[in-house]
Each structure stands twice: as C-alpha cells, then as structure tokens.
C-alpha cells in the first residue's frame, strides 16, 4: 500500500525528515508517536502533497505509483486522505457542495459520470450517521464556526465520503473531549477493512485505546527510531520518550 524509503524533507531550509522508512500493508493500522518537533505533522503534509515542503531525497510508493510525482489533487484521487490537525475554514462554500466537488473529482478520475443529486444526498445521509454530523453542519460553510469536535467529526465524515485506500489521521485527537473522541474513533473503526490502511499520528496513547493499532512507531528527529506492537504505546505513556533517546544515544 505505502512504502516510504529513506525520505528526506525540509521546509524553509530546515531539514525535518532525515531518512524515514515505513511500510504499510493493506488493512494495517500504524500509529506514529513522538515528541514535539520530531516531524510527525511534516510527514503527514509531505505525504498529502503540501508544496511548501522540499523533498530532498528518498522515495514514496503508493499502491505501486510514485507518490511524489503526483500533485495534491492527484494523490487524493488516487485514494490518499489526510484528516487535518487543523481543518481549514472556507467561508461561503457549503460543506455539502465542497463534498460534491470532491466526490465528483474522484469519480472523474475513475472515469465515472458526476454523481446524481439523489444518490449524493443518500450517500451524505448514510456517511453523516457514522459521526453523528447533523444536517445543520452539512449545510453550513466548510468548518466555519464549527467547534473543535465538530471539525474533527467533519474530517471523518469527509473520509467516509471519499472511501480512501489510505487515511492519515494527523493528531485527530487533539482538542477532543472524551465523547467526541469516542464518536470519531467509532467512525474510524467502522471504516477499517482488509483493503484500507490507516496511519494514525498522535501524541497520546489515549486515542490508541479506541483505535487499536497493529504497529506503533516512534518518530524522533526525522527518523523512525523504534517500532513495536500496541504495547509500545503503553510503554511510552508510562515512561515518556527520554529512555529511547538514551538508548539510541541521541
């Protein structure tokens, strides 16, 4: 599904990713944890195709394609989804029309006609149920005036609408209270399937109680320095990151 090999990236001449390796197979859920400034969000942005980041080396294969050759739109249409840490507000564009444009973009890529109005609304209704996104939020401008929890639920709603092959959740748990965390996690879990993979970026083990990962990786100073099963997250919760730093001699 995703094969990252020795990825190096910088922003404004500051080197952030310094040779990152990661392989995700279909159906797997990987979690990436790490201290502040270790490069977690940079990894998410680089994979989604944000142009401010300079790729300085390495390769990323996504479903057999060279991901780095695709622009942000093409990556999304190829089946990659990023749930933003800070979802963007777009005043004047209704959530529902935004999603219609997104769904039709994907359909165009697949050689399909634009979706029919009724089919689209049925789909919206079904997917909105997953994260309890009510009609009011569907018709409002994209994320405008949404609470933190509503924004994150909207991200998962969009993910459900687009049915990606790989979803990257960038600190989706930040700013969520316990109820919103449960709703968001249940939405994600409902979408787990043998074909769909997830990359969950988080600071806290808490999220991983709800979205149980197959693998946990520790990102530090632009590299993955340790990988393990879900118990690694518990160990990090208990002991922090310093012991890893010491072990790797950083």
């Amino acid at each position: 599904m995703l094969k990252i090999n020795e990825l190096k990236a910088s922003v404004e001449e500051a080197s952030i990713l310094k040779g990152l390796n990661l392989t995700i197979n279909p159906g797997e859920v990987h979690a990436i944890m790490g201290p502040n400034g270790s490069g977690k969000s940079t990894l998410a942005s680089v994979l989604a195709g944000r142009e401010e980041y300079e790729i300085e080396g390495g390769s990323v294969a996504f479903d057999g394609e060279d991901l780095l050759e695709l622009d942000a739109t093409e990556r999304a249409r190829a089946g990659l989804f990023l749930a933003f840490q800070y979802p963007v507000e777009i005043p004047g564009v209704s959530n529902i029309n935004f999603m219609r444009a997104a769904v039709n973009g994907k359909r165009e890529h697949e050689g399909l006609e634009p979706i029919k109005g009724k089919d689209f609304l049925d789909m919206v209704k079904e997917k909105a149920k997953l994260v309890e996104l009510d009609g009011r939020l569907r018709n409002r401008s994209v994320n405008e005036g949404f609470s933190g929890g509503e924004k994150k639920r909207n991200e998962i709603f969009q993910m459900a609408m687009l049915e990606p092959k790989l979803a990257i959740l960038d600190e989706t748990d930040s700013g969520l209270d316990i109820d919103a965390l449960r709703i968001v996690s249940e939405g994600v879990n409902a979408m787990r399937s043998p074909e769909r993979s997830f990359l969950v970026i988080t600071h806290y083990q808490r999220l991983l109680d709800y979205i149980v990962p197959d693998f946990v990786h520790v990102l530090m100073d632009g590299r993955i320095v340790r990988s393990g099963g879900k118990e690694l997250a518990l160990e990090l919760e208990e002991k922090g990151y310093d012991w890893i730093k010491e072990e790797i001699g950083a």
Binding site: D71, T73, A76, F81, L82, A102, G105, K106
Partner: peptide, 11 residues
C-alpha cells in the same frame, strides 16, 4: 483553503 480542497481531490 486551496490545499485543503485539493487534498479532497478537487482540482
């Protein structure tokens, strides 16, 4: 906003 829309597959 442009990046956000593009990350959803909008051209």
């Amino acid at each position: 906003a442009l990046f956000y829309a593009r990350s959803r597959g909008v051209g």
